[in-house]
Structures are given as structure tokens and as C-alpha cells.
Simulated assay, not measured.
Amino acid sequence: MKIFYFAEDGRGGALVIGNDRFPTSLLDLPVVVESFKTYDDSALVKTVDIGQMIMVGESDIVADVMEYEHGLPPLRDARKRRFLREPDLNVLTCS
């Protein structure tokens, strides 16, 4: 049996599976992730925008941060890459 508890702050909690208790944290992702589903293997249907995730740990130490800066593995450094300075295309370079 799985039971999930949230603390009063709404950010921390615990996941209980059988006799095991795992600490959890509700974390904000740095960017919104879109989720899609397909019914016929050709057309995609957008199902949800994901802005938060629940991180489950093995020890009693739970992160005190509100935002998980790297997000999901494919989003590593997403905020840094998203807000990179774009090169000035109006400058001509001669060689």
C-alpha cells in the first residue's frame, strides 16, 4: 500500500510504501515542460504543462530549495541556454 503525506508548508512530505518511509520535496522546474500523448501513433495531442515535480529521496535529508535548477535530465542548464545572449547579426566580419 502506498500513502503520500504533505507537511503543513506544502513543500515537504513523505511517501510510505509498506514499512519504508521516504522523504519528499515539491520542487518547481526552471521551465515548463509540455506532455503529449498519441492514440494512433501519428497524431500527437497535448495533455498537460508540467511546472513542478516531486523528488523522493532515500535519506531524511530533503533539499531546502524551492526550485530544482536543472529540471529533468534533458533540460540540464535549460535556463542558462534559454537566456543566452544572441550574437549581433548586424556586425559584418571581414577576413
Rank of each mutant, 00 (worst) to 15 (best):
P74N: 05
E34T: 10
A7F: 15
S59C: 02
E8P: 01
F36C: 01
Y5V: 10
D41T: 14
D49F: 04
G71L: 08
M55Y: 12
R79K: 10
S25R: 14
I50L: 08
L27W: 09
S25T: 10
D77S: 13
S25P: 00
P74I: 14
L26T: 14
A7E: 13
G71V: 11
R11Q: 14
V91H: 05
A14M: 06
F22H: 14
T38W: 00
E69M: 13
E67V: 15
V91F: 09
I61C: 02
I54C: 13
N90P: 00
V56P: 00
L27E: 11
V62H: 02
D40W: 01
M66F: 01
I61E: 11
S95K: 11
V48E: 06
L29I: 13
G57A: 07
A14V: 07
D41N: 12
F36Q: 02
Y39R: 08
R85H: 04
M53I: 15
D40T: 04
F22C: 09
K46C: 04
I50S: 01
D28V: 12
T47F: 00
T47D: 04
R21D: 09
L75W: 12
T24E: 06
L92C: 03
D9F: 04
V33H: 05
E58Q: 04
L26K: 15
Q52A: 06
C94D: 04
A7C: 11
L15E: 02
V62N: 00
D60L: 13
L29G: 07
D60S: 14
P73S: 06
L89W: 08
L89G: 09
F83L: 13
D77H: 11
